[in-house]
Amino acid sequence: MTGVCAAFVVALVLSLIVLVASHGLATFTVDGVSFASFVTGTVWNPHASDASGAPYMGALPMICGSFVVTVLSCAMVLPIAIGCAIFVVEIAPRFGERVFRPITEMLAGIPSVVFGLIGLTVLVPVVRGFAGGTGFGILSGSLVLACMVFPTVVALINDAIAAVPRSYREGSYGLGCTRWQTVLHVVLPSAMPGIMTAIVLGMARAFGEALAVQMVIGNAAQMPTSLFTPAATLTSVLTTSMGNEAMGTVYNDALWSLALILLVMSLVFILIVRLIGRAGKVRGNA
């Protein structure tokens, strides 16, 4: 009987992938847009057509936008998260357990729309203040995302560092090495697979986040040229446009193609996590 629940979950995932894929591929199979022009085109305006009659369906601005905010936010989070995790595992474990963990869990619990709202009311004006322009853009989006993925990443890195066997630390201390030397040369290298997993999962989360980013990025489907000009991500375009386009239209099919890209990317992130896990295992046994 419990097997039914499990089977149901598997069926659910399979149908989800098949359905999204069938709609997403319609752009290429039914509407005859070439896949290459879809992912490399830089103009996104499926309502209009160019001289040859093909709609402007270049998803590259959104693809770039998504990747740029993801990479930027994770690059901001990574050093801070590693530093915090080292502190709460190696230096002040009791503080970590009693203060730091509840605080990060609280951060993790804050809904994404609230992050978007804070971004809108605090971050955007600040960015506008020092960079000019509207304040909406990649930088604001990345900062909001950084706050959102931080709790996930720090918790995973925490676990990875705490999982390094005590005997490694003892071995290093026994040789007269300081705590910092031990952390730098033994603990961090041993925890590396776990840290990489953490960052990939953080990226997966940042890549798929929709509303918070949509609220601060400015939603202009143009190639990102600066951190301070409005841009768009796959998720932000989906959020804003899906409700306005009728099913079956070319525009709608194109949106499903964007959703398919999101889906595929999240599968790719899982695959990377798997590969890291496997590589870690091989190294451990060798």
């Binding site: 999962l201 989360r205 798929g208 959020t239 959703a259 999101l262």
Partner: peptide, 15 residues
């Protein structure tokens, strides 16, 4: 399947 589901963007689930 569960791992895939947990990493899916919530907007994709909504769609």
């Amino acid at each position: 399947a569960i791992e895939t589901l947990s990493s899916l963007p919530s907007i994709v689930v909504g769609l």
